[in-house]
């Protein structure tokens, strides 16, 4: 008997306690810092550790419930959660998720699912990462040259796009974020992220954050809190569905992961307040680009095993 190892009753494997706790801490830190669930990092890491793909994805959702509760609470305490905006994004995301699941069913039937999933991953991560990186770099330079310290809001110019957005019906003011938008905007973009998230099998935080920053023009710190609030509800739904239909949530693995991630999310939230909006964005952009490069390598290098478990991407 080795007390450093615990047996996982659903994954049917044994794991060194320190690994999931450490992983949880690292991903929870990112969650508290950037408002992402971290599924796009955690799930592949768990699969690498020998956890079956379906169990890895489902259990990760369960632990994100804990990390995002911890993160949302920390951000809510300092007034960084826009519940109104979060709710509309959530409704849009929910409808988009349903559409995305149907899209995956259709793609599976035509045999093109894996190609579409992988390409969506590379393109979305690549585009989002590159755009965020360049934009935050230029605004950091700009704020430096102007010796301005107000780097929380992205530079907003009255472009055709903004004029078009303002011409949409059902304009309403989102007090917490300090922005006025049509109600349709969070619904449509929430839905768009929901479709992509369902296709990619992730929570979609890394897509939702750029939508809130660049399209909804919300301040970065409110974006993080609101994104976590939205992720919390998404992951509650996913955890239940996975446990109920696939029996793939491993409770013990989830507890080990959340021991790390809840603490990590708190540290991330505290640490994030010490960083400027642009700094947060550039770090997130770097992580997103690093993941893109990793996926591109995976796609082009010959894998060590040519067969794998069914169920994951």
């Amino acid at each position: 008997m080795n007390f450093m190892y615990l047996y996982l009753p659903v994954a049917l494997t044994s794991i060194n306690i320190l690994i999931p706790v450490g992983l949880g801490l690292a991903v929870g830190l990112l969650s508290g810092l950037f408002g992402v669930g971290g599924g796009f990092l955690m799930t592949p890491l768990l699969i690498m550790l020998g956890i079956p793909a379906t169990v890895a994805a489902a259990t990760d959702s369960n632990q994100i419930v804990a990390a995002s509760t911890s993160g949302t609470y920390a951000h809510w305490k300092v007034g960084n959660v826009d519940f109104k905006m979060g709710l509309y994004l959530l409704i849009g995301g929910f409808i988009g998720g349903l559409a995305g699941v149907q899209a995956i069913k259709f793609l599976n039937a035509t045999g093109n699912a894996d190609f579409v999933i992988k390409m969506t991953y590379v393109l979305m991560l690549g585009i989002v990462g590159t755009y965020m990186f360049i934009e935050s770099l230029s605004s950091m330079r700009k704020s430096k040259s102007q010796e301005s310290e107000t780097g929380l809001k992205p530079v907003c110019t009255e472009s055709c796009m903004t004029r078009f957005l303002k011409s949409l019906p059902l304009q309403t003011h989102f007090e917490k974020s300090g922005v006025t938008h049509s109600l349709l905007l969070p619904l449509i973009f929430g839905g768009f992220v929901g479709v992509l998230a369902a296709i990619m099998g992730v929570g979609g935080g890394f897509l939702m954050v750029p939508v809130m920053v660049y399209i909804l023009r919300m301040p970065m710190h409110v974006v993080v809190g609101t994104s976590l609030f939205q992720i919390l509800f998404n992951c509650i739904e996913v955890t239940f569905l996975q446990a109920y239909t696939n029996h793939s949530v491993d409770f013990i693995l989830a507890v080990l992961l959340l021991l790390g991630s809840t603490v990590g999310a708190q540290i991330g939230a505290v640490f994030g307040r010490k960083l400027k909006g642009e700094q947060l964005k550039i770090i997130l952009a770097t992580i997103v680009l690093a993941v893109t490069v990793k996926i591109v390598f995976e796609l082009t290098l010959t894998p060590s095993l040519l067969i794998s478990q069914a169920g994951g991407h």
């Binding site: 369960n62 509760t69 609470y73």
Partner: peptide, 11 residues
């Protein structure tokens, strides 16, 4: 519920 409780507890 366990995940929510853990999240709140740590918070």
């Amino acid at each position: 519920i366990a995940a929510l409780a853990a999240g709140f507890g740590v918070s």
